[in-house]
Amino acid sequence: MSKILAAFAALLFSTAALADEYILVTSASNPTASVTKTELKEMILGKQKAWKQGSIVHLLLQNDESKSTDWVASQLFGVGVKTLITKIRQEVFKGELAKPVSCNSDADCLEQAKSIGGALTFVAAAAKLPEGVKAVPIAP
């Protein structure tokens, strides 16, 4: 019984850790307090083109081999990273989504997000956020 409880606890812990592995970050000038998972998916694919307060969404994405993009694909969309990247490129091709700004690392994404009012990017939860950016909680 104790083994089952321990396994259950371990599962719960690992799930929570996975869910909190990456965070949503935007410019500090963006007044948005939180977004829902649905809104976030729609912003990433260009269905929702502006943040709630009005500034245009600018997606900053690490390359498709990065863990953060893999996390976005699996945790937000429930698909593989190739499927998500194909979908994003298709939306750019359709004219529904501005071409994502590419960044090379968490630090690079954070640095670029400072100067883009409607920036939308993901970095590791453990990353230290510099001045000029802020984390935005993702509501279920």
Partner: peptide, 13 residues
């Protein structure tokens, strides 16, 4: 060949 560019609210493809 496909080009797309954006400047804030303005985009061109």
């Amino acid at each position: 060949l496909f080009y797309s560019g954006n400047y804030d609210r303005l985009s061109y493809l």
